[in-house]
């Protein structure tokens, strides 16, 4: 017993020694800065410097000023729309690759799906502007085929264009976790269900979908959380009515030099996201537990 305990201690020591550099890096450059951001959000912005007076004024401003409140609400709606659209559109793709592609060719399909994600994000967003614009590719194509007589104007510089562009940008983040969950499903369960006389659709609803839920939950979170903080897409294709919270944060930090208010906006956005994610996890808890 004593020897085993000693072995475990040595193992813990070895592990801690290895993890120390990345852990210290993350503590110093991630956790400490995040905590400082929280502190800043309670300080007062003075002229040229930050006054060390504790205040709730920044949060009061962030939550009651109709401009900030509107942008925050819009960011939330856009993130939710993007999440729903991305996950719904991605599911059949993950399903196809997992269930209908030869095992030896699966990684090639996944590679094809991930390639566009690795190409310059800025340039991809800009090209969506080219596709969706008044004289854009989509309008030109639709006019050429006589489907519309004049260019559609609801495509660019609004919430629609932000949702389309973000749904494109986050596609692999939704496909990959769902694919991994689908891969783990024991295929004999599906056969059992069909042997017991269930149709394919009922089998999907009662066996495949519940078992794929951990992947769906992961996909929802991994799309929802970062989208609310996206800066480039709303800046380039959002137009004045498509601005999101990251644009506000940038404005406070780099233009207006109001760090406390910028921090309060950032912390508020993160808080909203955290609360919604927690509620979502609570509702999907039974799926995550039931799939052992």
């Amino acid at each position: 017993m004593a020897r085993r305990a000693q072995g475990a201690e040595a193992e813990a020591k070895g592990g801690l020694l290895l993890i120390a550099p990345p852990a210290i890096y993350a503590l110093l450059l991630l956790l400490a800065p995040l905590l400082l951001l929280v502190v800043y959000s309670f300080l007062t912005d003075g002229y040229l410097e930050i006054v060390r007076d504790f205040t709730f004024a920044n949060y009061h401003e962030a939550w009651t000023n109709p401009l900030y409140r509107g942008v925050m609400l819009r960011s939330l709606i856009v993130s939710l729309l993007v999440t729903v659209a991305t996950v719904l559109l991605a599911f059949p793709v993950a399903y196809f690759v997992s269930f209908h592609v030869e095992p030896s060719r699966k990684s090639t399909w996944l590679f094809l799906i991930t390639i566009p994600f690795w190409t310059s994000y800025l340039i991809r967003v800009f090209l969506w502007k080219v596709i969706l614009g008044y004289n854009g590719v989509l309008n030109a194509g639709l006019m050429k085929f006589g489907l519309i007589s004049e260019p559609l104007t609801f495509l660019l510089y609004n919430t629609n264009s932000v949702v389309i562009t973000l749904a494109h940008a986050y596609a692999p983040f939704a496909i990959l976790p769902i694919f991994v969950a689908l891969e783990k499903i024991d295929r004999s369960l599906l056969e059992a269900s069909q042997d017991l006389g269930e149709s394919r659709i009922v089998t999907f609803g009662r066996v495949t979908l519940p078992l794929a839920m951990p992947g769906v939950v992961a996909a929802v979170l991994i799309v929802f959380i970062p989208t609310i903080g996206d800066y480039v897409t709303p800046q380039l294709v959002g137009g004045p009515e498509g601005r999101m919270v990251a644009n506000l944060i940038q404005l406070q930090y780099l233009r207006l030099d109001n760090y406390p208010l910028g921090s309060a906006l950032a912390i508020s956005a993160m808080g909203i996201v955290a609360v919604i994610s927690a509620i979502f996890l609570l509702f999907t808890r039974r799926y995550l537990k039931g799939t052992k």
Binding site: L29, L30, P33, L36, L37, G229, A246, M270
Partner: peptide, 12 residues
């Protein structure tokens, strides 16, 4: 979100 990483590091 990257902007959170960016602003928190900027502050520090």
């Amino acid at each position: 979100p990257e902007i959170i990483v960016a602003v928190s590091l900027l502050v520090v």
